[in-house]
Design a protein around this nucleic acid. Sequence first.
DNA 1: CGGATAATTTAGATGGCTCTAATTTTCTGT
DNA 2: ACAGAAAATTAGAGCCATCTAAATTATCCG
Lengths: 241, 241
Amino acid sequence: MTRHDSHYEEGTRAEREGPERASVSKAVEDYLKAIYKLQRAGQVVTTSAIAERLAVAPPSVTNMIKRLARMNLVRHTPYRGVELTPAGEKMALEIIRHHRLLERYLAEALGVPIDQIHDEAERLEHVLSEELEERMDALLGYPATDPHGDPIPTKEGVVATREYQSLLNLTPCQRAVIRRVSDEDPDVLRNLARLGLLPEATIHVLRLEAEEGQIVVEVGDTEHLLPLALASAVYVEPCTA
Amino acid sequence: MTRHDSHYEEGTRAEREGPERASVSKAVEDYLKAIYKLQRAGQVVTTSAIAERLAVAPPSVTNMIKRLARMNLVRHTPYRGVELTPAGEKMALEIIRHHRLLERYLAEALGVPIDQIHDEAERLEHVLSEELEERMDALLGYPATDPHGDPIPTKEGVVATREYQSLLNLTPCQRAVIRRVSDEDPDVLRNLARLGLLPEATIHVLRLEAEEGQIVVEVGDTEHLLPLALASAVYVEPCTA
DNA sequence: CGGATAATTTAGATGGCTCTAATTTTCTGT
DNA sequence: ACAGAAAATTAGAGCCATCTAAATTATCCG
């Protein structure tokens, strides 16, 4: 009866919270990741925030929250919001690690354009084995960040968080190294890539255009007028020289 | 209301049989693949054969068959068995293409041992985008077979089927090139790999041991006594010299 | 050819994840 | 401090994919 081995992998096993290996559905992983990111962005994580992030109706969230609470991945105070337990946070970080490692791999090994890697990784992250994770990690030389500049959590769940300042804060004549670009909007990302405005690039602020925070920057040998939408997606570390 | 975009992707859309793009659940893909393989292995595809292959109870199969029939992926004659429609076969071949391309990629680009590639590919095949498929294909130089020697269907759904004879049919002193190894049993595969008995290897049959079809073969410079379990998993093309 | 056996299907249930509509609770502004 | 608005939850439903138990249909053999 090999039949009974494979069908109850999704969730049921995790409920008796064995320390074994938590096989969990894609939906659960998506919720954990969303909660983690909202939590990290400050304040309490509300039902509606999760709903919006996952493009799901609020009652679906309430429903899932209850399941997550039963699995001890989340602590829920009704009407008050939700908080990851250590177990939940660990799981969230594993998924984020998968995601960011995949992004790096897709960009580096397969040459996938940076504005597409997010969506690809989004689908792959749920089926990446530890074995493959390890192989990709080694092949890439154990990278610390993904192509957007976001830190890749370690296998132990440690995230090297660093805050960078917005490109918008720079003043004319300053030089800076791009450290992170927002991965929110693929369009923005595609345009940044076209202009060479990606992490590790050095830029030189030439001047500010009066209206609406537009900035003229020099990258390599060419100068570009950056609209607000682009400039606000770029985070930099000013050169101290 | 971006909310309504993403939730009805699994199956529901395919039911109104648009010629657009069939987003289909993992389960549907698994059934199609199973039916394809059983169909190809000859005879009528029965409910119980599918059930056994997928390690699922027969009523689950009946249930899914009805859904597949509604989607026009399968023709079902109650109590008589099932047959893929052209649309169903095309879809099955796409998945098999994904699977075999992934196997090749995992082996070649990531160095995953041959006895593990099947299970990895099994999970990845359902989330591989056309974009990534194309990139992997190009990177590998458009390979014709997977590491077990099974043909990779083209994007158009053409499979270059070739029949090879079993190693067991060879007679002493014959030389042959291994063309295919069965991917059924990972253990067998691991042992074959350990002995260098993989596709493209040239072997030399030294003699047959009396009992139970054991065979002594030379691979490279060393000779091995192959138990039946191993020998029967190897398919060869005899050298015509 | 007809009854026993095997295969298939129907019936009915469950769990996961989603939805809308209705209700309850919390927040907020005057 | 309270009424109206906003947020969260409950209620009730549906689809997918699975299960077990029971009924039906096909097959096979004496």
